[in-house]
Each structure stands twice: as structure tokens, then as C-alpha cells.
């Protein structure tokens, strides 16, 4: 067991243990992430899905150590980096690219497109003058930005092109892992498809692994081998992508999957409304967070918070009622 764990650590790019993060504000504290346990292995992309406020963006930021978790540990390639200084993290950041939700805002407005892609090479002191240019141009070519667009500034490009540039920049240091935070959410649907195709191509060609945060299950399904469904800071269901879509166990996952709009021959199927008629107990702080919306809720759900448990059919689910 111990040896197996060490071996699995070696292939794990990022691992988090009991990761908890609280934001303190004037009105009290908000628990954005509550005891997350996740592992990203090489070649096994992870999708994080959930509604707004479920803590998925916080989770991906913690995984990149943009902030320190209130509790728990973060491992990169087998190293516990929870308390590491930025200086120590720097070489490891080469292996980890980040693409944010806002393509325009994430590009340096004072640099040209080419300048943006060269920037990580400068920060890490990799390659020199003409070699840098060559590498950046190769990346641009790879993501499909034409040469005439390379000398312009980010605001002169369309959203889709901006996101291509952001992806090229994230890949400039040759990472194994790309962290994508809602990377296609702000784009038009047709452009989304282009970016997803690009990401699929890159994944296959360069052996990349993704951590993909999204509220869009369909996108995650296309890009990730496994999916973690988050609800109010906790993982409520974790499974391989095919299994999760074929047989969702948690009532929240079921609801999410049902709420994907479908176009059929009969027209657009009506979306199920969130029942929202669960049980609301007096001590709702202790029980399952989803109980208030859950159609399956029983008394036990109010008294006792379900932990993630292994199902015989594979996958993990945090629900007393799920089988």
C-alpha cells in the first residue's frame, strides 16, 4: 500500500489533501473549499464542475499556490509545496500553465501578442533574442495565430484569438499540466468549439494533462478523463467521465446533467426545474449542504454530513441515499 502510494505520487502532478480555504469578510467567514482531496495524474485530465460559488475557481487557484490554503496540504510532483516561498515554486511553475477565464484581461495590455508569448521565456531566462522569437512564433503557429496578428496589441484581437494567445503563452515553458479556469466560458459558442478543438489537439499531440474548471458539463466531457462535481466547497461526486455521465449517483450531479439543454427532433426539451423542495432542518449547519435542494433528502441528511465514500461500481459519492 505504502509503496503503491509512493509510486502513484510520482505520476501525480498535483495532489491536494484536506485542502480547506476560508475567506474572511466583514460578515463572517466563507468556506470556499472544504476538505478537498484531489489528485491529478499525468495523462488523466481532471474536470471540476459546479455552479457559481461552489469553490471550483478557488480550488484551481489553491492548486497553483496563488494563495495558501487555511488547512490541508498541496503536493506538486511529490513535493509538499504548501508552505514554499514563491522563489522555490518558480522552477515548478514552468511545468504548469494557466489560462484564465478572461482572455482579454489576462494578457499584458502593454505588450504585443508576440511580446505576451515571449514574456514567460524572459521571466525564466530561457533562450535568447532570435531563439526566443523563433519559439514564440512556433507557438503562435501551433495555436493558429497568423503572423500579421503577432505585432498587434491584445485589445485589437477578437476574444477567440485572445484565448489562443493566452493558451500559447501558457504553453511557452513547455508545461505538462495546463490549468484552465472557465477557459471557454466567455466565448461565443462557435468560438468555444474552435478552442475546445485546439485544446483536444494540443492534449493529444503534446501529451498534456488538464485541470479544467467549468460550469459546462459538456465541455468537461470532451476534455477530461475524470470529473469531480463540487457543491458548496465540497466534492460531492468523483468518477471517470464516461461513468459519471452514464450513471450519475449524486442527486446534484443528476440535476446538472439533466439541465444540459438538448436539441432533438421534437424541438428543445424542457429543462427540469430545480425541485428546491428538500428538507430544511433547524440545525442545517451540520447536515448535508445539498439537503435543502435534494429530492431524496431524509432525516439523516440533516443530522449527518455525508463523506465521500467509495461505491462498489467505482467512483466516489458523498450522499447517504446514493447507491
Amino acid at each position: 500500500m505504502a509503496i503503491a502510494e509512493i509510486l502513484s505520487d510520482r505520476t501525480s502532478l498535483v495532489k491536494v489533501e484536506h485542502m480547506t480555504h476560508e475567506f474572511r469578510s466583514g460578515r463572517g467567514k466563507i468556506v470556499a473549499c472544504d476538505g478537498l482531496n484531489l489528485m491529478v495524474r499525468k495523462g488523466e485530465s481532471l474536470g471540476l464542475v459546479g455552479e457559481s460559488g461552489s469553490g471550483k475557481s478557488t480550488a484551481i487557484r489553491l492548486m497553483q499556490r496563488f494563495m495558501r490554503p487555511s488547512q490541508g496540504k498541496i503536493w506538486w510532483q511529490g513535493h509538499d509545496v504548501t508552505r514554499w516561498s514563491e522563489r522555490r515554486l518558480k522552477p515548478y511553475r514552468q511545468k504548469m500553465g494557466f489560462v484564465s477565464q478572461d482572455p482579454y484581461g489576462s494578457l499584458f495590455p502593454n505588450r504585443t501578442i508576440l511580446g505576451n508569448v515571449i514574456e514567460p521565456l524572459i521571466i525564466h531566462g530561457i533562450a535568447e533574442g532570435p531563439e526566443r522569437m523563433r519559439r514564440a512564433e512556433a507557438l503562435m503557429d501551433r495555436v493558429g495565430i497568423a503572423a500579421i496578428h503577432q505585432q498587434v496589441f491584445p485589445h485589437e484581437l477578437s476574444g477567440g484569438q485572445q484565448q489562443r494567445v493566452a493558451i500559447a503563452r501558457a504553453m511557452a515553458l513547455g508545461p505538462d499540466l495546463l490549468m484552465l479556469d472557465e477557459a471557454v466560458s466567455s466565448l461565443d459558442v462557435s468560438i468555444q468549439a474552435q478552442i475546445i478543438n485546439l485544446l483536444q489537439d494540443l492534449k493529444a499531440d503534446l501529451d498534456l494533462t488538464y485541470v479544467f474548471v467549468s460550469h459546462n458539463l459538456a465541455v468537461v466531457r470532451l476534455l477530461c478523463e475524470s470529473v469531480a462535481v463540487m457543491y458548496l466547497g465540497r466534492v460531492v461526486e468523483f468518477n471517470r467521465t464516461e461513468a459519471l455521465f452514464a450513471t450519475p449517483r449524486h442527486p446534484y450531479t443528476k440535476m446538472l446533467i439533466q439541465s444540459i439543454p438538448r436539441l432533438t427532433d421534437e424541438g428543445v426539451s424542457a429543462l427540469p426545474e430545480d425541485p428546491g423542495r428538500g428538507l430544511i432542518g433547524e440545525n442545517s449547519g451540520t447536515g448535508c449542504a445539498y439537503a435543502a435542494r435534494c429530492p431524496l433528502a431524509v432525516e439523516r441528511c440533516l443530522a449527518e454530513a455525508p463523506g465521500l465514500r467509495q461505491l462498489p461500481s467505482g467512483g466516489e459519492v458523498a450522499c447517504h441515499q446514493a447507491k
Binding site: K90, R93, M96, G97, F98, S100, S106, F108, P120, I123
Partner: peptide
Amino acid sequence: QSPYIESARAMGASTWQ
């Protein structure tokens, strides 16, 4: 607060840089 500052952190830029 801009997103590109977060990008800079992600690529490993020091505070000074």
C-alpha cells in the same frame, strides 16, 4: 487586481518583476 497579474504569478514572475 487585473487578471494579467495573476497570469504573471502563474508564470513564476517575482514580486519585483
